[in-house]
Nucleic acid binder design. Sequence first.
DNA 1: CGCTAGTCGAGAAAGCTTCTCATTTACTTA
DNA 2: TAAGTAAATGAGAAGCTTTCTCGACTAGCG
Lengths: 146, 146
Amino acid sequence: MTESQIKQAGLKVTLPRMKILEILETGGEGEGARHLRAEDVYRILLTRGEVVGLATVYRVLTQFEAAGLVSRHNFEGGHAFFELERGTHHDHLVCIKCGRVVEFLDEAIEERQRAIAAEHGFTLEDHTLNILGLCPNCQAGQPRPS
Amino acid sequence: MTESQIKQAGLKVTLPRMKILEILETGGEGEGARHLRAEDVYRILLTRGEVVGLATVYRVLTQFEAAGLVSRHNFEGGHAFFELERGTHHDHLVCIKCGRVVEFLDEAIEERQRAIAAEHGFTLEDHTLNILGLCPNCQAGQPRPS
DNA sequence: CGCTAGTCGAGAAAGCTTCTCATTTACTTA
DNA sequence: TAAGTAAATGAGAAGCTTTCTCGACTAGCG
């Protein structure tokens, strides 16, 4: 079924694409690390002994984004995070110490944003809301190594 | 009074710093263009015949940010925008075509964010909310050249 | 099985930002 | 006011993320 997603996007089903999609699905190793930088994906591939160029990772992630399979987020600090698109919009709560990301959705905020765009005569194409703070672990002085 | 701000930050009052602060205050030329990239500041200085290195612009803006005189925003696209800090928090409505920026503040959204951070056990250190859309001019097919 | 367009990997290159370091400047002390 | 000192500057090199180039390779089709 992941194959069909790639095909629907008008892309050929190749090994690098399958591997990258799989890493985005599983987060590489443990749980929850589903917000990955391009270099994270590349490093995970290397760890597994897979030979995929960094340029290919960027290229494929960009293609996936264009195809709507993946969404790209610009948190603070110059590099983008990629996340598998699951059809449900959400915003992010980001720990400024360990980088942990929690997703949330608040309909009251969504509604206010629509109203604000309208008030100023803007169309609403997209939005990014990132709340930055310290997660419970990092407040306790025990940053978990992600 | 701008001098005193610089001094309070523990920085020496130098010509480059005064000039950069002045550009941030006036926006360089016309009205409203108060969200400038480092390179914009640099270019405006050049236009005025001032000799200030790009490295100095970056250095000074970073120092001003640390001192709370300036805030840095990462809208889409790899480069940061700097804005004079006027003590009042606000979020941004950004035109994805002409780059025009409108500031807004919505207390309902602010309140919901505090609640969301608390629900997840996060401290709330900061947040960035950028609404992306088309401004009235660009919807009309007449992008104003900023 | 062979063709062809699409894809890949590696390294070069681009764009933004930071670093290095010799020179210059602001502020302090006499 | 002159001199000394620590900080700041400017120019270019370097760093980082991301994109581009291009010859080699491969998926998908006939």
